[in-house]
Design a protein around this nucleic acid. Structure first.
Lengths: 145, 145
DNA sequence: TTAATTGCAAATCGTTTGCTGAAAG
DNA sequence: CTTTCAGCAAACGATTTGCAATTAA
């Protein structure tokens, strides 16, 4: 399997784009941090290593990361978009603590199958889905609210 | 069962709010139109009947409609929030055509059960969930794209 | 070279808010 | 009367964009 860096570089090449210093820094920062984060968070991490990289560049590169398949964006609703590693990661949905924001990745074959069936029953060709479960995590429900 | 209007009026009363002319117009416009719509769409419908109602008032009233239980808001992602009738309507999720935007309401007991189970397996107390399936509807896939 | 890219600041877009005059109870 | 509203326009926050200067190839 190709390395993530390799994938990104090929993606750039295939699209006549260049590997700039900024993109290198941003991609490295992205690859170093697993987990879920916002564009702002990535920007602030990048800023520490390279203060002159502007946030527009971070946004632009984040888009390239998604297009190249390295990253995945998911909309939590209420204007919050989170990014996570995608390359080499299996599909999953999220369970989010409504109180502390903790995120757990979940997958359920039964649900996936029923989703496909529901779409089909309505004559739709399913292209993608978004499912987020909100609840209170053990830590938050244990602590006296 | 109380009428939707009754519910709204009681909601206002219980919260020391008044039933203004504007609120009356907006609620009526809301009740007349089933289906999914954005805040902007409601505003434009209201504007036709009462041009001097401002959009801030529509936004504010829409929020009251949700709080009172008459309306339900759901986030389609990409910054799109849709509203629909909620009072007297059962829970459902949505199947959306990625091409023409057509929306079909869906429910699946199996999925609902699995969602609860998944939350429980992780020690979470499920409070709500959001599920949207995107696909191509029969009309759109039939027509030569 | 020469097209691609950056940083900056200004522009979006949907939604919210502060303020002041105006209705509701 | 006294409180809650409405309208307006300015404020927002996340993201995008135009542009002139800068780099990659």
């Amino acid at each position: 399997m190709k390395s993530a860096r390799q994938v990104f570089i090929e993606f750039l090449g295939d699209n006549g784009m260049s590997l700039t210093h900024q993109r290198r820094v941003i991609v490295e920062s992205f690859l170093e941090n697993e987990g879920h984060f916002t564009a702002e968070q990535l920007y602030s991490r990048v800023s520490k290593q390279a203060p002159d990289i502007g946030q527009a560049t971070v946004y632009r590169t984040l888009k390239l990361l998604v297009e190249s398949g390295l990253a995945d964006a998911f909309d939590l609703g209420e204007g919050v978009t989170l990014y996570e590693h995608h390359y080499g990661h299996a599909h999953h949905d999220h369970l989010v603590c409504a109180q502390c924001g903790r995120k757990v990745e979940i997958v359920d074959e039964t649900i996936e199958r029923r989703q496909a069936a529901l779409a089909e029953e309505n004559g739709f060709t399913l292209t993608r889905h978004r499912m987020v479960l909100f609840g209170i995590c053990p830590a938050c429900s244990g602590a006296a609210a």
